[in-house]
Amino acid sequence: MIENSELSELAAFAAVATHRSFRKAALERGISASAVSHAISNLESRVGVRLFHRTTRSVSLTDAGQMLFARLGPALVDMRDAVDSLNSWRDTPFGTVRLNVPNTIAPFVLGPMIETVLKANPGLKLEIVATDRRVDIVDEGFDAGIRFGERLSQDVIAVRIRSDLRFAVVGSPAYFESRDIPRTPHDLHAHVCIRYAFPSGTILHWEFARDGESVHVEVDGPLMLDSQELMVDAAVRGVGLAYVWEQRAAPAVKEGRLLRCLEEWCPLEEGLFLYFPSRKHQSAGLRAVIDALKA
């Protein structure tokens, strides 16, 4: 029979193997990084085999560690599912749900949901990582992610969630003092535009639609940023036009520091999904999150 200490060591091993990081494993386990390191050292001493290659900058599995992780992963999933099945005997779900969501939209999609879910489910914990980096939710140990439909792979289950997101093209009154307000997306070629770069280096194209017509514009300008907050700030300062989520620019628009243009060319984004691996059990906690996001 496996003792509690051994189960704890194996859980720590699985967390480090998933995240390739002692620090991230410690955050997931709710313990210190030194405690995780101690658990791994005890496990390696007990089995007599090195499970990780460690350097000051990286952690990777040895061949033995890869074999153990491959065998251990399904067993841990079965145990989590067994514990989650107890939710049918409770009034509300318990456990932790780990979500990944693009940083650019996180506040507007998750803000209302967080309060709703946590108040309704006192035994539930949410761990949310907001990043515009492309994330493999399986490799990085997430229960689910949020992404636009065109970026989803075919081997996931995707649930459409409610969205009132749309882009806005904005510029300052000072910027428009010497330039005409664009009337169609094609007019943007004559304007100075602030471009957005994803962590991968991919540049965001400005996309528009109206009356069944779709227009993609590759804009130009001297400034490229990886933060929509900085884009709004630069637009307020008159650097150029910014193409950001409507809610991101709303305070500056309301205060008159930014003016909107091409509004009729910026429809609502309808393809926002919460997704998770098709082979993953949908826990009661994840179902609570899905219901709140769809509401």
Rank of each mutant, 00 (worst) to 15 (best):
E263Q: 11
T131C: 00
K119I: 09
R20D: 10
L268D: 10
S178M: 09
R151M: 09
K119G: 02
R80P: 00
R210Y: 09
P74E: 00
V239M: 11
T55A: 09
V49M: 10
V169W: 04
Q282R: 15
L165W: 10
F69V: 02
L268V: 15
N4D: 12
Y196T: 10
D136C: 03
E28I: 08
D139Y: 02
I181G: 03
H281N: 12
L188G: 12
N42Q: 12
M113R: 05
A25V: 14
D220Q: 14
L7H: 01
P102G: 14
R133F: 00
C266G: 03
D139K: 15
A168C: 12
P222V: 06
L223F: 09
A292H: 06
A12T: 07
L124D: 00
V219N: 07
A235D: 13
A158G: 00
F108N: 09
L43N: 06
M67W: 01
V59R: 02
T202G: 01
G240M: 13
I105M: 15
G30L: 14
W265I: 06
L10Y: 10
L99M: 10
L165I: 11
R57M: 05
A70D: 09
L124M: 00
A292E: 03
E246G: 04
S60D: 13
H191Q: 15
G256S: 03
G30I: 12
V101L: 11
N121I: 07
S227F: 05
E229H: 09
F273S: 04
V138E: 12
D180C: 00
V135M: 14
W265G: 06
D180V: 02
S60C: 01
D211C: 07
P182Q: 10
T92F: 02
T56I: 01
H281I: 01
H205R: 10
D136Q: 07
L110V: 04
H216E: 13
A17H: 04
D81G: 01
V47N: 05
I290G: 08
R162T: 02
S34R: 14
W245M: 14
E269A: 12
V159K: 08
L68S: 04
C266I: 02
A292W: 06
A33R: 15
E177T: 09
L126R: 00
D132I: 10
R57F: 03
P185A: 08
L259P: 00
S178C: 05
P173S: 08
D132T: 05
G123W: 06
S172F: 05
